[in-house]
Design a protein around this nucleic acid. Structure first.
Lengths: 258, 258
DNA sequence: TCAAAAGTGTTTGTAGTACACCCATGT
DNA sequence: ACATGGGTGTACTACAAACACTTTTGA
């Protein structure tokens, strides 16, 4: 959606293609330089950062819509994606917006009963992606993007700070019952890397010996016969996830601590 | 919504009061005679059982809408209510319905672009209620109600069997991290009662000694100086939930098994 | 040879699990 | 007195938690 013609078509006829009143707002987590990051877009006119949301097509399955939106923004197709909450309690979201806002901010003429002005519920998804493989696509409404450290998220649009908070909370809870990491790490990784990832997500220190013991005992990872050279230090072994064990644990859940 | 006038107003003008495309579908759990039950309504015309769903008013908070719908159907105000999933993947829900269906089934004339014919996403909530305090209200669309044993749910409307399944799964998972029972049991209850409740929800046997030990150790319940007379047997002690501990555990979560 | 990071085992404590007998009550 | 369900304590086991020193590597 880049030409003015496309944008106008979306604004004036979008309700024929998309369901009004419901949006999908993905919180995209990536991991880079030992920091957990979230991808935000800079919304033109609104002068603020926001989640890379989108709408559901009228004949599209909900889960397909979520994958499509993610793919459109990040060009990724291999990712972990999970619905976590519907947001519909923010006073901001209950109020409908007015047409003059659109005129001012985007320079677009919008009729007073336009579908984009109506109240919208937000379905929150969180995604875990390989930071290095993401290439972000911007469009008419978004002029920039940035990976923000989760410990340093700025005030963002509408009630979306709440969405990010809840996504992080869900991720932290889930890590105790499901393996996480397959989509956040490269195919081959070292123990110190996954160890730091878990510490970063949970925001606390984990004993290195107990941690690796646990992952290996659960059969989630296996040691390879390769090492990574990291300069003036001992070369750590590379590991891979055991795909079958990992999938099984995803399905069945695991009960444990780290 | 009982008079024909009210019904016609809802069908033809409901989209002015309610958000189209989104419904709330509550799975209401009750506990009676050592069985876990779900409340279903008999939908007139559709000739089938279904969840007691409803729509969200345009200026109403999502959580308020859920409470209002529950209250309208059960006349309860003290209950545990929690959102658990949005359903939008059923092929049935993607197809829009046609007007002749309404004519046939309800005897109502409906214009072809009526809001009720459009695709609807369903927000699943589950509720835990005191069976004995529920008094069900039916209306024009619903002619009867029934509490079904969870092990014996009939095929129900649309994709709602999936909704019930997922609600049950969520309940079973949650019972490991949160106390449950406050809304399913009367104020005073015996150990064998709550023990059977947990066995019923989890669908497996729990050692009676370990179970009561655990609940007491967690400080969730306290023994009263009363007993219940149960006929030709030893009278069991009555217990009560420790409200503060219980609330605290609800907030913070508990990590344990039973 | 030094600095920085990786790698590895053992002990201790706690909590889950398994298990069986006596007690109270009404008929 | 008997049938039925209620109530209680202990021993074992497994796993989480705590903890420190040696090895590798490049500068």
């Amino acid at each position: 959606m880049n030409t003015l013609e496309e944008v106008n078509d979306f604004v004036h006829n979008g309700h024929q293609e998309y369901l009004p009143h419901v949006s999908i707002d993905p919180v995209i987590f990536g991991y880079h330089q030992q920091k957990l990051k979230i991808l935000l877009l800079r919304w033109k006119g609104l002068d603020g950062w926001g989640l890379p949301g989108g709408f559901i097509k009228r004949r599209e399955l909900l889960s397909q819509a979520a994958y499509r939106i993610l793919h459109e923004k990040t060009s990724l197709s291999d990712l972990f994606l999970q619905q976590f909450h519907v947001f519909g309690d923010s006073p901001y979201r209950v109020q409908e917006r007015n047409a003059s806002e659109y005129k001012e901010k985007f320079g677009l003429e919008v009729e007073p009963n336009n579908w984009l002005l109506e109240r919208t519920l937000s379905i929150g998804y969180f995604a875990l992606v390989d930071y290095s493989k993401v290439s972000v696509t911007t469009d008419f409404f978004t002029e920039d993007y940035h990976w923000f450290d989760v410990s340093d998220i700025p005030p963002i649009l509408f009630d979306q700070n709440e969405t990010v908070e809840k996504a992080l909370l869900t991720l932290r809870l889930q890590i105790y019952h499901q393996p996480i990491g397959y989509n956040l790490l490269p195919e081959k990784f070292t123990i110190p890397e996954i160890h730091t990832l878990y510490e970063t997500i949970l925001g606390k220190e984990l004993d290195q010996r107990n941690f690796s013991k646990k992952l290996i005992a659960l059969g989630l990872i296996k040691k390879l016969d390769e090492r990574r050279s990291i300069g003036a230090h001992r070369s750590p072994y590379l590991y891979q996830f055991e795909k079958e064990q990992y999938e099984h644990a995803l399905q069945e859940g695991i009960v444990h601590t780290y």
